[in-house]
């Protein structure tokens, strides 16, 4: 009888072992994959500056951004809300890695265009990569006529260029960190003392406080700022709110410009003396051609 019971027990064991074996087969077969780490940041902008994120193939993003005047400009100006710099832009993702965009800012009547390319994407699994890296290059054309000498106002002298390598890591679901070494070239500067080539290092973070809300911070340290103007490093804090196809970013920053060469190099506000601009970015994404997001 003892043996008989033993047999039944072994029989039962072999039965459960079987269903576990089937699962083991699936685990073994599924272990070979590499997975992309998605959603390091909510949007293509951290706050003022770009994040490593780009839109997926076939997405046209319409971006409207505002920076109001300084909140310390008093009640008569309604704490800066009477005056604003607006930038609107169309940004199109040709594929999951490449985005081209054009934008126009009311501040200094500036047009800008940029190319953004995701070079390295953070991955887990077989071919893991600990970080993401995105290349960013932009050109801006200042069309406002504020040149003291009119012969100075040539097309070439209105241009400036920005190059960045954005490097980020999503440490966990709630915390991501980004570094942004930046190089800016100005074709024309105000004074002979001012550098034509400028280097800066940006750092930024996103901390998610719920599924749809996150707190962001961003700081750009300028290594060789303009000498002729009292410029400050750009600093920004904000809240991202995600609602389906929209992302709202509410921002407090000492910069009025929303393009790289502007907020990194030409910020004059002192954040800690109350020269704070309230602003927002609103993005609306349209899927204009079919997404093939089979790339994992």
């Amino acid at each position: 009888m003892k043996y008989f019971l033993l047999t039944i027990i072994i029989g039962l064991l072999s039965f459960t072992a079987n269903s576990q074996e089937l699962e083991a087969i699936l685990e073994k077969e599924s272990a070979n994959g590499t997975e992309l780490v998605l959603g390091s940041f909510n949007g293509t902008r951290l706050l003022n500056g770009h994040s490593i994120e780009t839109r997926k193939k076939g997405v046209l993003e319409f971006l409207i951004s505002h920076r109001f005047d300084r909140v310390n400009s008093g009640f008569d100006e309604f704490f800066g809300l009477d005056d604003s710099n607006i930038r609107f832009a169309f940004e199109y993702a040709f594929n999951d890695r490449l985005t081209l965009a054009v934008g126009r800012s009311s501040f200094e009547k500036t047009y800008d265009g940029y190319v953004k390319y995701r070079l390295i994407r953070q991955k887990t699994g077989k071919k893991a990569s600990p970080i993401s890296a995105t290349l960013f290059g932009s050109m801006t054309i200042k069309t406002i006529d504020d040149f003291e000498d009119e012969s100075d106002a040539t097309f070439g002298r209105r241009l400036s260029y920005t190059s960045q390598i954005l490097i980020a890591r999503k440490f966990n679901q709630n915390f991501s960190f980004q570094l942004a070494p930046t190089f800016i070239h100005f074709n024309r500067v105000n004074s002979p003392d001012d550098p034509h080539n400028m280097f800066a290092l940006g750092a930024g973070t996103r901390v998610k406080i719920s599924k749809r809300v996150s707190l962001n911070g961003e700081y750009y340290y300028n290594l060789n700022p303009f000498e002729s103007r009292d410029v400050k490093n750009s600093i920004a804090f904000g809240v991202d709110i995600e609602t389906g196809g929209h992302i709202f970013q509410l921002i407090f920053t000492n910069a009025v410009s929303m393009i790289e060469k502007g907020f990194i190099a030409e910020t004059t506000g002192d954040f800690f003396k109350g020269d704070i601009h309230f602003g927002f970015n609103i993005s609306r994404a349209f899927q204009v051609s079919k997404a093939i997001s089979n790339e994992q």
Partner: peptide, 17 residues
């Protein structure tokens, strides 16, 4: 017996978002 398994992330949609 039957065992099925899939990765949620492998679902593809018409819109990337």
């Amino acid at each position: 017996e039957l065992a099925i398994q899939l990765l949620m992330r492998s679902f593809t949609f018409k819109k990337a978002l």
